[in-house]
Amino acid sequence: MADTVLFDLFGVIARQQSPSGQELLVAMASVSASAFWQTYWALRMPYDRGEVTGSEYWRQVAAALGTTFDDHQLARLIAADIASWSAIDDDMVALVEHTAASGRRIALLSNIPEELAVHYEQHHRWLKHFDVVAFSCRTGQTKPDLDAYRWCCQTLGLAPERILFVDDRAENIQGAKAIGMRTHLFTGPAQARQAITELDPVPRRR
């Protein structure tokens, strides 16, 4: 049986990185878009795992691109990066709130750096609805590594088959399936709502 929902953040509850934000980051770095994004993603996982700070990450990006960013540029890049990931899907927030209000346990699993995690904590009160919030910068585990899903199971105190994992990326879905979670590949709020509706009844809390 599955009765608990584990949500991804970006691409599910929050929007993917905005095109305007992407353009601004490339312009601020003053390099070609192809070189910028190859470097941005190649160095991102240690940042998401909390192994480096925002300033350290952007210095690494600069070095890989053969340039330098001063302290003012670093601060602006960090702020622009946060802003580019800050839009949310109001319909999905409503679904999160509805699911929590039904008595069903919910949790959140996201690859996210510390500065962005702090932004969400400061600006989005709906995070309080989650029984467990697994931000990769705090757990040290990133999807699709199996330990990221195992961390959630252990912290929730549940076997994998008790959890429905909702994510928009196939590789992350495969990671969850590999440890025995039920999964839903996110394509929109209506389909996610239906998948949650089809779960086993909410267990009575004693």
Score class of each variant (00 low, 15 high):
Leu74Gly: 04
Thr68Lys: 15
Arg150Asp: 09
Arg76Pro: 03
Gly66His: 02
Gly140Ala: 02
Ala83Cys: 08
Ala107Trp: 10
Phe130Gly: 09
Arg162Gln: 15
His129Gln: 11
Arg76Ile: 13
Asp145Ala: 13
Phe135Tyr: 12
Thr139Val: 10
Ile163Asn: 01
Val93Gln: 09
Ser110Leu: 13
Glu114Met: 06
Gln60Thr: 12
Pro113Leu: 10
Arg104Asp: 02
His72Lys: 14
Asp131Val: 08
Arg162Ala: 15
Arg150Pro: 10
Arg138Ile: 01
Leu127Arg: 14
Asp147Phe: 00
Ala80Tyr: 07
Ile88Lys: 00
Glu114Leu: 07
Val96Cys: 04
Lys143Ser: 08
Ser84Asn: 02
Val96Leu: 09
Ala148Val: 07
Ile82Arg: 04
Lys143Gln: 13
Gln141Ala: 15
Ile112Val: 13
Gly103Asp: 06
Leu146Met: 10
Gly140Asn: 11
Ala83Ser: 05
Ala101Ile: 01
Gln141Cys: 13
Glu161Gly: 08
Phe165Arg: 07
Ala100Asn: 05
Pro113Lys: 13
Asp89Pro: 01
Arg138His: 09
Leu146Lys: 14
Ala80Ser: 15
Trp151Ser: 00
Glu115Thr: 13
Asp147Asn: 09
Tyr149Leu: 07
Arg150Gln: 14
Phe69Asn: 00
Gly66Lys: 03
Ser84Tyr: 04
Glu115Ala: 14
Met92Leu: 09
Thr142Met: 05
Thr67Pro: 00
Met92Pro: 01
Thr139Pro: 04
Ile88Cys: 09
Asp131Cys: 02
Ala80His: 05
Val132Tyr: 03
Cys137Leu: 15
Gln122Cys: 00
Ala80Trp: 05
Trp151Thr: 00
Glu97Tyr: 01
Asp89Arg: 14
Asp71Val: 03
Val93Gly: 10
His124Val: 07
Glu161Trp: 12
Asp71Glu: 15
Ile106Pro: 01
Gln141Phe: 15
Thr142Gly: 05
Pro160Ser: 09
Ala101His: 15
Ser86Tyr: 12
Pro160Cys: 01
Ala100Met: 02
Ala159Asn: 08
Cys153Trp: 09
Asp91Asn: 06
Phe135Ser: 07
Thr67Arg: 12
His129Cys: 03
